[in-house]
Amino acid sequence: MKPPPDSRAPLPPFTLDSAKMKVRLAEDAWNSRDPQRVILTCTRDSVWRNRVEFPVGREAIRAFLQRKWAREIDYRLLKELWVHDGCRIAVRIAYEWHDDAGQWFRSYGCENWDFDRHGLVRARFASINDKPIPAAERLMHWPLGRRPDDHPGLSALGL
């Protein structure tokens, strides 16, 4: 049976390798800072909790991401698989960004994802904290966009 055109491989149930692949694909989508690319990985009625915002559905998620990336300038993100089971994946995250005054931050957190059978995110729950950092303490220096394969991940950076 062929998956529908809006499915997103790899599909659940996840193995260790397919969960790691799903995490990297999600990291790549977020590092594109393209809301359209991210929302196409979600069900049309996807439910999110991100800090104090609770967007539901692709259009609300798109608006959330547009606000986020307008505020979080030069955003670079790392995601690392924490655990997986069936249709769920939990990740640790860290990302660096600066505000319009030039203050750099490192944001730390975790995300829990629940996927439908087509590999689309039907629920995403994120808990994130921001730490102001001097620019000299930044660890994520690749050009904007996809993290290079040889750039260290969270554990290798001691995060």
Score class of each variant (00 low, 15 high):
66 Q>L: 03
95 Y>D: 15
75 Y>N: 15
17 D>E: 11
143 P>N: 09
64 F>W: 11
149 D>K: 01
122 R>A: 04
108 Y>W: 05
149 D>S: 07
46 S>Y: 07
37 R>V: 15
79 K>G: 00
28 D>Q: 13
52 V>N: 14
82 W>H: 13
37 R>M: 14
36 Q>L: 13
157 L>T: 00
6 D>K: 09
159 L>Q: 05
28 D>E: 14
1 M>H: 09
72 E>K: 11
157 L>A: 01
67 R>Q: 15
65 L>H: 02
8 R>C: 14
111 E>H: 07
126 A>R: 12
22 K>Q: 04
155 S>E: 09
150 D>K: 01
151 H>A: 09
19 A>S: 08
59 E>G: 08
117 R>A: 07
19 A>G: 02
42 C>F: 13
38 V>N: 05
130 D>L: 05
25 L>W: 01
132 P>L: 12
10 P>I: 00
31 N>C: 14
30 W>P: 08
63 A>G: 10
151 H>F: 12
118 H>E: 05
41 T>A: 13
111 E>V: 09
80 E>S: 05
136 A>K: 06
61 I>A: 02
121 V>A: 10
19 A>I: 05
54 F>S: 09
49 R>K: 12
35 P>E: 11
110 C>M: 06
3 P>I: 01
20 K>G: 11
134 P>Q: 12
72 E>Y: 09
69 W>R: 05
4 P>G: 04
19 A>F: 04
96 E>T: 11
52 V>M: 07
114 D>Q: 12
109 G>I: 01
155 S>Y: 07
85 D>E: 13
30 W>F: 15
33 R>D: 08
121 V>D: 04
55 P>S: 14
51 R>E: 04
19 A>Q: 08
154 L>G: 01
17 D>H: 03
67 R>T: 13
121 V>I: 14
2 K>P: 06
114 D>A: 10
86 G>P: 10
124 R>N: 08
68 K>W: 04
116 D>L: 00
131 K>G: 06
118 H>A: 09
128 I>M: 09
44 R>A: 15
97 W>K: 08
49 R>V: 13
140 M>L: 14
145 G>V: 10
108 Y>S: 04
18 S>T: 15
97 W>A: 12
83 V>F: 00
117 R>D: 03
58 R>Q: 15
33 R>H: 11
136 A>E: 08
54 F>V: 03
51 R>A: 08
24 R>T: 08
60 A>R: 11
52 V>L: 14
91 V>P: 03
105 F>C: 03
153 G>V: 04
1 M>A: 06
61 I>M: 12
33 R>L: 12
92 R>V: 03
61 I>E: 01
142 W>Q: 08
159 L>S: 01
64 F>R: 07
104 W>I: 02
62 R>E: 11
74 D>E: 15
96 E>G: 10
72 E>M: 13
27 E>M: 08
45 D>H: 09
114 D>W: 06
28 D>Y: 11
132 P>W: 12
146 R>N: 10
79 K>Q: 02
128 I>K: 11
98 H>A: 10
116 D>I: 03
9 A>C: 02
139 L>R: 10
115 F>Y: 08
156 A>C: 03
77 L>K: 13
139 L>D: 06
17 D>Y: 00
67 R>F: 09
100 D>L: 02
5 P>Y: 05
144 L>P: 10
83 V>I: 03
141 H>W: 06
71 R>K: 10
